[in-house]
Amino acid sequence: MEPFLDIVIEDARWEALGLAALAQPAVLAACSEVGLEVEGFSLCLMGCDDARIAVLNGDFRGKAAATNVLSWPSEERGAELGCVPDLPAAGEIDDPEPLGDIAIAYDTCAAEAAAAGKPMRDHVQHLVVHGFLHLLGYDHIDDADATVMEATEVRILARLGLSDPY
């Protein structure tokens, strides 16, 4: 099987933390929880710093400030208010369906983990799961959607042995 998760490291601190080793099981746990087969899909995760994510946030969301994680689904996915999104159709093994891209900022993640008194590795896995769910069409703008997304995150994190972040 071709690797379905492409990791791009723009900040060496992510390499030192082991972003790939944290992201792979987080995405696999998310796929398992929502019933998405890994084969036939691809996605890209970029580990960057606050300066880079602030530019991306400004370019794509009109908010020129750092944030913890951003997601760009390859296509618009979603669901009825308060419902689970439909799963995307898989591509071929040699021509996988792209789910989209995720960027995660080291500085913001480290600051949030420290402020919450939790290990950086746990927080990173949570944010990778969060970003991945956005690629599938989960959202948290409306309370009903937030309830669905957060409950799904909690179940995925439990699969990883991580506690409820909410």
Results as ranks from 00 to 15, higher is better:
29 A>W: 10
152 T>G: 01
75 E>M: 14
164 D>K: 04
151 A>L: 00
79 A>M: 09
25 P>L: 07
27 V>F: 10
15 E>L: 08
123 H>Q: 14
17 L>G: 06
123 H>T: 08
78 G>T: 10
2 E>A: 05
76 E>V: 14
91 G>C: 03
33 E>S: 11
10 E>W: 01
160 L>F: 06
153 E>I: 05
66 A>Q: 09
55 V>S: 08
13 R>N: 12
116 A>R: 14
163 S>W: 10
148 V>N: 03
159 R>I: 04
108 T>N: 10
12 A>E: 13
75 E>T: 15
131 G>F: 07
84 V>P: 06
80 E>R: 13
41 F>T: 01
2 E>Y: 01
165 P>F: 05
129 V>T: 11
58 G>H: 09
18 G>L: 09
31 C>L: 01
64 A>H: 12
28 L>Q: 15
43 L>S: 05
63 K>N: 12
71 S>P: 05
70 L>K: 08
31 C>I: 09
23 A>K: 07
118 K>L: 11
143 D>K: 12
151 A>Y: 03
143 D>V: 04
55 V>K: 13
108 T>A: 13
12 A>F: 08
6 D>F: 02
14 W>T: 04
25 P>T: 03
60 F>W: 14
43 L>I: 01
139 D>M: 05
26 A>D: 00
118 K>N: 01
133 L>S: 07
141 I>C: 01
133 L>A: 09
150 E>R: 13
156 I>Q: 05
100 G>C: 03
17 L>D: 05
153 E>M: 11
144 A>D: 15
122 D>R: 04
102 I>Y: 06
60 F>I: 01
25 P>M: 02
107 D>M: 06
19 L>T: 04
92 E>S: 13
67 T>S: 11
119 P>C: 03
95 D>R: 11
72 W>S: 11
114 A>L: 13
129 V>C: 12
162 L>R: 13
164 D>C: 04
139 D>T: 15
109 C>F: 06
108 T>C: 08
135 L>E: 04
48 C>A: 11
110 A>W: 02
18 G>M: 06
6 D>K: 14
161 G>D: 10
118 K>C: 15
5 L>P: 00
99 L>H: 00
42 S>M: 09
150 E>A: 01
111 A>D: 10
132 F>P: 00
100 G>V: 05
36 L>E: 05
113 A>S: 12
55 V>P: 04
43 L>G: 00
145 D>I: 07
72 W>L: 14
43 L>K: 07
94 D>C: 06
9 I>E: 00
42 S>E: 14
74 S>T: 08
123 H>S: 02
161 G>L: 07
36 L>Y: 02
119 P>W: 01
88 P>Y: 14
13 R>G: 03
152 T>E: 08
16 A>Y: 00
83 C>Q: 15
24 Q>S: 13
3 P>D: 14
48 C>D: 03
126 H>Q: 15
142 D>G: 00
47 G>L: 07
47 G>A: 06
93 I>W: 02
72 W>V: 09
158 A>M: 00
49 D>E: 10
11 D>V: 00
15 E>M: 03
135 L>W: 09
85 P>T: 13
33 E>L: 01
109 C>Q: 10
70 L>R: 10
5 L>N: 02
73 P>G: 08
38 V>C: 08
137 G>T: 12
47 G>P: 12
141 I>T: 12
159 R>N: 12
80 E>W: 12
161 G>F: 02
127 L>I: 07
140 H>V: 05
100 G>N: 02
134 H>D: 06
33 E>N: 05
35 G>V: 05
93 I>K: 07
